[in-house]
Measured scan of single mutants.
Amino acid sequence: MKTQEELTEIVRDHFSDMGEIATLYVQVYESSLESLVGGVIFEDGRHYTFVYENEDLVYE
């Protein structure tokens, strides 16, 4: 089982391919040991929310 830090790094690596990240945040109250819920804001102003669970990243 991966730690929350490892899950965060996986998500950061994925989004870094889309541009320069200004902020990546995790909603700790919605996340667990198996899933990571949060959002990412890019330097150009784009903002996505995401759920990473079971090695699957869903964002909008």
Rank of each mutant, 00 (worst) to 15 (best):
H14L: 10
Y29H: 09
S16L: 14
K2P: 15
D56R: 11
Y29W: 11
T23R: 10
D56W: 15
E43K: 14
V37T: 12
Y25F: 05
R12Y: 08
V37P: 01
G39F: 06
E20K: 15
M18Q: 08
S32G: 10
G39N: 07
F42G: 00
E53T: 14
S32M: 13
D56I: 12
V26D: 02
D56M: 14
L24N: 00
E6M: 10
D13A: 14
L36W: 05
M18V: 06
E20A: 12
I21A: 02
V28Y: 09
E60G: 11
F50V: 01
L7V: 07
E43G: 15
E43I: 10
Y59D: 02
E53F: 15
E34R: 08
L57R: 01
D13P: 04
Y52L: 09
T49G: 04
T49N: 07
E34H: 14
I21K: 01
Y52H: 02
Q4F: 08
D13W: 13
E30S: 13
E6G: 05
E34N: 13
A22R: 15
F50M: 01
Q4V: 10
I41M: 14
F42E: 00
K2F: 07
L7Q: 04
E5V: 08
E20R: 13
T49M: 07
G39E: 05
R12H: 09
I41H: 10
D17M: 15
V28N: 13
Q27R: 15
Y25D: 04
S31M: 08
E34I: 07
Y29D: 07
M18D: 04
E60H: 15
Y29L: 07
M1Q: 13
V26R: 01
S31Y: 08
V11P: 01
F50Y: 13
M18L: 09
V11T: 03
T23M: 08
S35F: 09
F50A: 00
S35E: 07
V58T: 14
R46Q: 08
F15A: 03
T8V: 13
L33I: 08
L7D: 01
T3G: 11
N54F: 07
D17T: 14
H14I: 08
D56F: 06
T23Q: 12
E20Y: 11
I21F: 03
T8S: 11
E60K: 15
S16R: 14
L24Q: 02
E55I: 05
N54S: 15
D17L: 14
H47L: 05
T49W: 10
E9D: 11
Y59Q: 04
E34M: 10
R46A: 07
I10E: 08
D44K: 01
S32F: 09
E5W: 12
G19M: 02
T3W: 05
E60S: 15
E5T: 09
I41N: 03
E9I: 08
E60V: 14
V26G: 03
K2E: 04
L33H: 13
L57I: 10
T23S: 12
V11K: 00
G19Y: 03
M18Y: 11
E20S: 14
E5G: 07
F15Y: 03
H14E: 06
E9N: 11
M18C: 06
L36S: 02
E55N: 15
Y48K: 02
V37K: 13
Y59I: 15
E34F: 07
G45Y: 03
E30R: 03
V51C: 06
T23G: 05
L36T: 03
E55H: 13
L57S: 02
A22G: 09
I10L: 14
S16C: 06
F15R: 00
D17Q: 13
E53L: 15
Y25M: 04
E5R: 05
S16E: 09
E9A: 14
R12F: 13
E55Q: 13
Q4E: 06
I10C: 05
K2Q: 08
V11D: 01
N54D: 12
F42Q: 00
N54W: 08
Y52S: 02
F50G: 00
V40I: 09
K2A: 07
A22T: 13
V58Q: 15
V40P: 00
Y29P: 06
V37Y: 10
D13N: 07
Y25T: 06
T49C: 06
V51G: 03
M1D: 09
M1L: 11
Y29F: 13
E20N: 13
Y52R: 02
S16K: 15
E53D: 09
H47W: 12
H47P: 00
M18A: 04
T23K: 10
I21P: 02
H14K: 11
R46G: 05
M1C: 09
Y48S: 01
E55D: 12
G19L: 02
S32Q: 10
G19W: 03
S31H: 15
G19H: 02
S16W: 09
H47V: 08
Y52I: 06
I21S: 01
F15Q: 00
G45N: 05
T23D: 08
Y48F: 12
F50H: 00
Q4M: 13
I41R: 07
V37S: 13
V58S: 15
N54I: 04
Y52W: 12
K2I: 06
V58C: 08
V37H: 14
L33T: 13
E53W: 09
E55S: 14
V11C: 04
Q27P: 03
G45P: 00
T49S: 10
Y59C: 05
S35G: 05
L33K: 14
V37G: 10
R46I: 06
I21Y: 02
H14M: 14
N54K: 09
T3K: 06
G19S: 03
S16H: 13
I10D: 06
V58K: 14
H47K: 15
V40G: 00
M1I: 10
S16D: 08
E30L: 08
Y59V: 15
Y25C: 05
I10K: 15
T8E: 15
T8R: 11
Y59F: 10
N54G: 11
I21C: 03
I21V: 09
Q4A: 09
Y59E: 03
V11L: 07
G39V: 09
D13S: 14
Y29C: 07
R46C: 05
Y25H: 04
G39Q: 05
H14Y: 12
H14T: 10
A22H: 12
Y52K: 02
V58G: 07
S35R: 07
N54C: 05
Y29A: 06
E20L: 12
L36G: 02
E34V: 11
Y29R: 04
Y52G: 00
V51R: 15
I10Q: 06
E5M: 06
G38A: 01
R46F: 04
